[in-house]
């Protein structure tokens, strides 16, 4: 029985299975708002569609990270030890859960941007700029999950009971820790993009405030990262 093979298949399934949820919801939200906007302002359907596509492409990043980890797991192989199996499974859990929140969160500003462009097509540039920055910062927590997942996959694991349990803990800590900050930072970006759609002159102040708020909101994801690192390297 090849334990590494079990680990990589289960891990890849969990990574892509859970990781597809968030981005699916987020992209659907953006598409819905774009449809609403086009029905309100059919003449600017071109710029609304462009905003939607760019927003969706960035939203997809979290799922692409999940796909990346799943593919690496599928083709990696490794020693047949319990530590390897657990590391692979929990790398999958980590990136899968980690992609859930940021996927939903990054979809929200994309929807708000479509709405804003429909309301005032002439403000497309500043709305889209704020959307891109907001989405990119929203994805910080899934990037932490990616880092932890890659460390779990490529680290040399000692096959002790203590370390095996610590690996499970690290994957779970970072996976669950990324959900909340992802959605929260997405809400901040949603409201900032929405308000810039109303009043474009305030974009500088609003973007700065959004960034500060998002970085404070992500401090919980940073706690999770620290805990995961401690679990991986100290036990």
């Amino acid at each position: 029985m090849d334990l590494a093979l079990i680990g990589s298949y289960v891990g890849a399934a969990l990574a892509m299975g859970i990781g597809a949820i968030g981005a699916g919801i987020g992209e659907g939200y953006a598409a819905g708002k774009a449809g609403e906007g086009i029905s309100r302002q059919p003449s600017s359907s071109g710029s609304i569609t462009r905003t939607m596509l760019i927003g969706q492409a960035i939203t997809e990043t979290s799922s692409i990270f999940a796909l990346l980890v799943a593919l690496i797991l599928l083709f990696r192989g490794g020693e047949s030890t319990t530590a390897t199996m657990l590391a692979y499974i929990f790398a999958g859990v980590c990136i899968g859960l980690g992609a859930l929140g940021p996927g939903i969160g990054a979809g929200l500003p994309a929807g708000a941007a479509c709405q804003g462009v429909a309301r005032k097509p002439e403000n497309e540039n500043s709305i889209m700029l704020n959307m891109i920055i907001g989405q990119a910062v929203t994805q910080t927590s899934v990037i932490f999950a990616l880092v932890v997942a890659l460390l779990l996959i490529f680290q040399n694991h000692a096959d002790t009971f203590m370390h095996n349990v610590a690996i499970c803990g690290a994957g779970l800590a970072m996976g669950f820790g990324a959900i909340g900050p992802g959605i929260g930072a997405g809400i901040a970006a949603y409201n900032a993009t929405d308000s810039i759609g109303y009043k474009v002159g305030t974009s500088k102040v609003v973007t700065t405030t959004m960034l500060l708020g998002q970085s404070v909101c992500q401090s919980t994801a940073i706690y999770s990262l620290v805990v995961a690192m401690i679990l991986m390297f100290m036990f």
């Binding site: 990043t61 692409i64 990270f65 994805q139 932490f144 970085s215």
Partner: peptide, 21 residues
């Protein structure tokens, strides 16, 4: 720690996307 995490998220975003693609 937040300042260090900024560097990590800034660079891994690009790395993950291009490698994944």
């Amino acid at each position: 720690i937040g300042e260090m995490a900024k560097v990590v998220s800034h660079s891994f975003r690009l790395f993950g996307n291009i490698l994944g693609g």
